[in-house]
Design a protein around this nucleic acid. Structure first.
Ligand SMILES: NC(=O)c1ccc[n+]([C@@H]2O[C@H](COP(=O)([O-])OP(=O)(O)OC[C@H]3O[C@@H](n4cnc5c(N)ncnc54)[C@H](O)[C@@H]3O)[C@@H](O)[C@H]2O)c1
Ligand SMILES: NC(=O)c1ccc[n+]([C@@H]2O[C@H](COP(=O)([O-])OP(=O)(O)OC[C@H]3O[C@@H](n4cnc5c(N)ncnc54)[C@H](O)[C@@H]3O)[C@@H](O)[C@H]2O)c1
Lengths: 221, 221
DNA sequence: TCAAATATGTGAAATGCTTCACAAGAAAAT
DNA sequence: ATTTTCTTGTGAAGCATTTCACATATTTGA
């Protein structure tokens, strides 16, 4: 069959992608500090990784270094921003302007990074129409319409766990392909929708486990 | 050498611990729904894992199921809560009562789960002395003293990235062994201190990468 | 009571990820 | 110019995690 011989799309591990974020952050700092080049060793040290790991990760995407010298800081940072797709800005909507939602809207770093929260939704009449950092809260009823009209590409979900699935169903119906969820619930989305969960309880539980078991994990992410 | 023959402490992978949290959550729901038993298949389906994965994870800690029947819901939930160390409560302090810090203090689920935020610290004179959900904000200057006096076991760090390392150094000096950090910076802590990072930008960057590369990771965590 | 169905627990295999180790390329020193 | 030093890029090895597959135990139904 023809489909058997289609060139296999190179799949990158989740860990590698997360480490690219770390490299990006480290390179931004190095740039500010005035370094022109950095070795895999130098980069590894900043993020508590091994030099081999750094080189291997980068090698999945090309060869950006110079033997004997290292990597050019600015160039590599730019290259990684291209790989991560953060060399542009993203139009983001947020659903659920409560405790955590408000904190996220107020967080300027997201905007600076290019994740522009340009739309807010809630179902509470007291919140609809109110202004948060220059954005007027929309009624969740108009979600589908307004997401499309406003060319939203990512949605952050910060509603109670009990309603998160319904909200996500609507978001998916509106054609959104990337969702960041803060509700502690396992949401069902179609295969072509990227969903990430931010689960703070899980991290506290990890710490609890570590304290109780004096835990050293086999491999640290 | 004697140390060569010491019984090797069983090391559990980070992924397994995270999945225990998922099982715990799923079991709590199943309990509410009135189920008395659940199979590895049933549990796996709820959390989008494989039955073999569920059985293997649990097998690291003992055998809790009955062949032909499955696992007793209540018993297994209790067992996992023991393993995770959440069959008790933890005294938690939070440093940095800003946007995200305030959201965390207001979040009742943490308290319900046994993560009791009982102490708040800030360095802003306008915040020190003010009351958040019944807790009076303390001056960061008294950190070491008050952490000890109040038997704090975990600290959540929600201060600006620029000062996070200083704050963490003080927390470590005060003898705290578990820290949850929200600042997007790689903090240095001694080997015997457990540090977890909650990095929201990283998750947005992951979504960005996924959209740009139409990414399917090799393995989903 | 016995057969069929179900589902665990676990070695072993398969897969994935990290680290090793070194050839090769480039810079720096002499 | 030549040697030495440095550091990348990458197969291959080593290690960790997941999945497979099945013996075994228990329940269910006849
Ligand atoms: N606050 C935290 O620190 C924290 C921490 C971890 C996880 N979470 C999770 O984040 C989510 C939000 O938490 P929160 O503390 O901000 O809660 P919250 O109650 O303060 O905010 C929830 C918001 O969602 C809105 N909402 C409810 N139903 C809606 C619907 N159908 N459509 C649109 N909007 C709707 C509410 O009006 C409210 O403004 C929850 O799932 C919670 O479990 C919160
Ligand atoms: N707000 C968000 O949604 C969000 C999202 C991701 C990450 N973060 C990170 O979380 C951290 C806090 O963010 P925020 O938006 O809440 O900021 P914020 O400025 O609202 O809050 C920071 C708080 O820390 C206090 N503080 C400053 N220096 C201190 C010190 N030395 N000791 C004690 N307290 C001190 C400030 O007075 C303030 O109350 C930052 O590192 C930020 O990057 C925030």
């Amino acid at each position: 069959m023809a489909s058997d011989s289609l060139p296999e799309k190179k799949r990158i591990s989740e860990s590698t992608i997360h480490r690219l974020s770390l490299y990006y952050r480290a390179l931004s700092v190095l740039e500010k500090e005035g370094f022109e080049t950095v070795s895999s060793k130098g980069l590894a040290k900043r993020e508590k990784l091994t030099p081999a790991q750094v080189r291997k990760d980068l090698s999945f995407f090309g060869s950006f270094g110079t033997r004997g010298l290292g990597y050019p800081v600015v160039e590599l940072r730019e290259k990684i921003s291209q790989i991560l797709g953060i060399d542009r800005s993203w139009r983001v909507a947020l659903v659920g302007v409560g405790n955590i939602g408000s904190a996220l809207v107020s967080y300027k770093e997201f905007q600076k990074q290019g994740f522009k929260i340009v739309k807010l939704f809630d179902n509470d009449q007291r919140k609809i129409g109110s202004n948060h950092k220059g954005i007027v809260v929309s009624d969740i009823k108009n979600l589908a319409n307004e997401l499309e009209l406003d060319n939203i590409e990512m949605v952050v979900v910060a509603v109670p766990a009990t309603v998160a699935q319904y909200v996500v169903d609507d978001i998916v119906k509106a054609g959104i392909k990337a969702i960041l969820n803060f509700a502690p619930v396992n949401l069902k989305v179609p295969d072509d929708v990227f969903l990430r969960n931010e689960n703070m309880s899980m991290e506290l539980e990890y710490l609890s486990f570590a304290l109780v078991n004096d835990h050293i994990p086999k491999r640290v992410r």
